[in-house]
């Protein structure tokens, strides 16, 4: 008669024999690449401030430049390599947001310009907007209620 483990025992056994991600190595890489991307952002921020733009305008311009860089590196097939190396270090910065918009747009071009690029562009980034915007409305309403 075949000996079969229970599902619980099997799950525990699998956790034991499956190699773990190299968290320490991955975290260090994420720290350095993420930090470096932020330094690049700071450089653009300072440059725009020096040109005489105010804080808000500089910050918007910096976003645009960083997103342009993220999309460009995605189009040139470089951002996926960066992501493989840096993990969250290139996912979490705004360039990663740009990558998550550009990559499905490029991938789904084969399904057409409307239902392919148009519809699939927010496959991954859509939830970020849904939750981000909804939360900001809630926070805004609370702010209103506290003030009045």
């Amino acid at each position: 008669m075949q000996h079969v483990m229970t599902k619980d025992d099997y799950r525990k056994y699998v956790d034991k024999v499956s190699p773990d991600s190299k968290t320490l190595r991955n975290t260090l890489r994420a720290f350095f690449v993420g930090g470096l991307i932020c330094v690049i952002g700071q450089f653009f921020m300072n440059s725009f401030r020096q040109m005489g733009f105010d804080q808000d305008v500089s910050s918007s311009l910096t976003s645009i430049v960083m997103i342009f860089l993220g999309v460009s590196l995605t189009a040139m097939n470089i951002y996926d390599d960066l992501g493989r190396f840096a993990g969250a270090g290139s996912i979490v910065p705004i360039t990663g947001f740009a990558n998550s918009v550009a990559s499905p747009a490029i991938e789904y071009k084969s399904e057409g310009y409307v239902l392919g690029i148009g519809a699939r562009m927010f496959l991954i980034a859509g939830p970020v907007l849904v939750y981000g915007i909804s939360m900001s409305i809630i926070v805004g309403i609370i702010h209103y209620l506290i003030k009045h």
């Binding site: 720290f31 993420g34 930090g35 932020c38 993990g87 969250a88 270090g89 996912i91």
Partner: peptide
């Protein structure tokens, strides 16, 4: 400061990915 703060935020994301098996999309949200 930008390097350290930005790096720490990304590092926190990496720990979450490796330890919780959350997908990248969930981390972003």
């Amino acid at each position: 400061n930008a390097f350290v703060i930005g790096g720490l935020i990304c590092a926190a994301g990496q720990v979450l990915i490796d330890r919780t098996k959350l997908t990248a999309a969930r981390i972003l949200v």
